[in-house]
Nucleic acid binder design. Structure first.
Lengths: 128, 128, 128, 128
DNA sequence: GTGGTCTAGACCACG
DNA sequence: GTGGTCTAGACCACC
């Protein structure tokens, strides 16, 4: 089985977040579809060389969001129903912060819109 | 002088981060222009009902990013030169995460593009 | 584990600066090499008899300079890549001030050159 | 009378220190010799566009070091005798910090020695 | 008046 | 165990 996830050690965010973000991205892009089995915690921890607890924390967060379901003794699977979305307020806040950073970095509005379209396209292709 | 900043107590991020993000956003949207004075640490701390140190930490972070300059005994001012931007990799990562959340929340691609355009417009109007 | 740092209480600079300077010096002299773990904040604070926050501030400064990397729950380590240096202008300014002080103290040019050579040698031996 | 001093607004140090450092440097390089009159506080403050108190603070510091003598109603003059030097410990500390920064910036030992010799030569020519 | 430093101690996040 | 955040309040440095 090929390695599903890769994380960037230079990315300063907590490891469990990077793992959760990767999986979330794969689900959003339909690389992982409802009913698909996720790799075991052990498998991912081994692949990435991180602590079991760290991966378990990521799974717990995804379960809390309703994106996956975990059952004792069985592999976690991607949840069937799309979960209740986070409040729109939080989503806009995250988006606004990302856009602020781009503006401060000197990106023009049109360039940003192109970038967004690119990223959305890549999401659906499972691109990285 | 009207209150410049508002922060959301339900937003779970550190207070100093929320303060820094607000100011960063105001600078990106040109509500605060190079050379403009920022409110004093005491002023903001009083308005928000938080500790002086918490606001000072936000200012220190912004100074570290080169967005503002702080001098002993004088008000902090918005820096003239735009600082070196964060590596494009980090910017894209932040953007991608925001977009992933929106997709998972069920937003359609076209709706997302509209939302992004809206947010960019609001940034430049100092909207919240 | 022997005590790594010593600071001079008669030195009027902020404690966190003295701590940061010591560590910077140890890195420059390769007593601390890329990948090496730094003592924990608690360890240093205990050794020096200062507050945890004071040491944490020093670590945060060094991290901001890119000299060390800090991750939640793990020891701080000396960064692998050398960070972008401060502008040469600032470096020369610092050097010039030091030299001015020496000249005013009556040191001869040749004595100063000898002193500089000595200090460079000691840096690389981890001397204090 | 030509403007004697120039200070760099981008230099983050306190203004009074930059003024004092400039004058110290001019004395060390013998551009200002024992018995020479210094510009009035008012003059310098006007030239630099800073507060009178700020310049007065610089003069007070130089007087405290014995480098200049100020008398009520009369111009400050450069002191005749070289003052007692700061303890060698402090001088070496300042020098070491400057050298540490250079080493961290990747300067080679030989390049540093050349730089030091250059700076000493410029000091005596009143170079900036 | 401005911002900076330090302390004490509580609590949280991470691995 | 590690480091991070926040608070309270004191005192200092600067303009």
């Amino acid at each position: 089985m090929p390695v599903l996830l890769e994380i960037d050690p230079d990315d300063p965010r907590p490891i469990y977040q990077k793992v959760a973000d990767e999986i979330r991205s794969l689900i959003a892009g339909a690389t992982l579809k409802p009913g698909d089995q996720l790799p075991s915690v052990r498998q991912i921890a081994g692949d990435l060389g991180v602590n079991l607890n760290t991966v378990a924390t990521a799974y717990r967060q995804l379960e809390g969001e309703g994106l996956i379901t975990v059952r004792h003794g069985a592999r976690a699977v991607v949840a069937a129903r799309r979960p209740a979305a986070a409040p729109a307020r939080d989503l806009r806040r995250g988006l606004r912060n990302s856009l602020t950073q781009l503006v401060l970095a000197g990106w023009q509005r049109s360039a940003i819109l192109t970038l967004v379209a690119d990223e959305l396209r890549e999401l659906h292709k499972g691109g990285r």
